[in-house]
Design a binder for these strands. Structure first.
Length: 165
DNA sequence: GCCAACGTTGGC
DNA sequence: GCCAACGTTGGC
């Protein structure tokens, strides 16, 4: 799941959200603003208790920086109906919401992040991540991670100093 | 700031 | 339903 750790204004609001921002939250964080059907459907398939990677995008050093937990399954993304919200969508109607959120909670931060260049190298044909959705559809902000992809990446994390809370 | 790789829109 | 034109994402 991608978020932008550097300041950028969208509809008058700073959309900056880093893993440290998530870490500082005391309440479950709604993952809102997803406005792509494939990404939304991925949100809708998430189950409570599942884990997700936190990816820093549109920044100096893009890559996977940590993990979080799905603490609440999907519900309507009401921010779509707020004309002042960063990702306002006038085509979503309150009585028939188009978009969804899940609620997440911080789990861990990697001692060393896994950079996009490394991910791409692991995604070459014949490599462990050759079928990873985020490498095939690089613009998707919420993408699927298979159990074997997760295991492989967490192995890489372990080799490089592991995770911190 | 550029632009490749998408996704969306709307005329026909 | 096709597809040209346009808009968006996100790496570089």
């Amino acid at each position: 799941m991608k978020a932008e750790p550097e300041t950028r204004f969208e509809n008058g609001t700073d959309v900056k959200f880093s893993i440290d921002d998530l870490k500082s939250r005391t309440e479950p964080e709604p993952w809102d603003g997803i406005r792509n059907y494939v990404a939304r459907n991925n949100l809708r398939s998430m189950k409570k208790g599942e884990l997700a990677f936190f990816y820093h995008s549109n920044c100096k050093e893009p890559g996977i920086v940590g993990t979080m937990e799905i603490v609440q399954e999907h519900s309507p993304d009401l921010s779509a109906h707020n004309s002042k919200a960063p990702y306002y969508d006038p085509k979503s109607k309150p009585d028939d919401p188009k978009w969804s959120v899940v609620h997440v909670r911080y789990r861990s931060k990697f001692v060393q992040q896994i950079g996009l260049q490394e991910l791409k190298a692991m995604g070459k044909p014949g490599s462990p991540l050759e079928n990873m959705q985020m490498l095939k559809q690089s613009r998707l902000s919420v993408s699927r991670v298979s159990p074997s992809e997760w295991e492989y990446l967490m192995g890489v994390v372990k080799e490089r100093g592991g995770e911190t809370e």
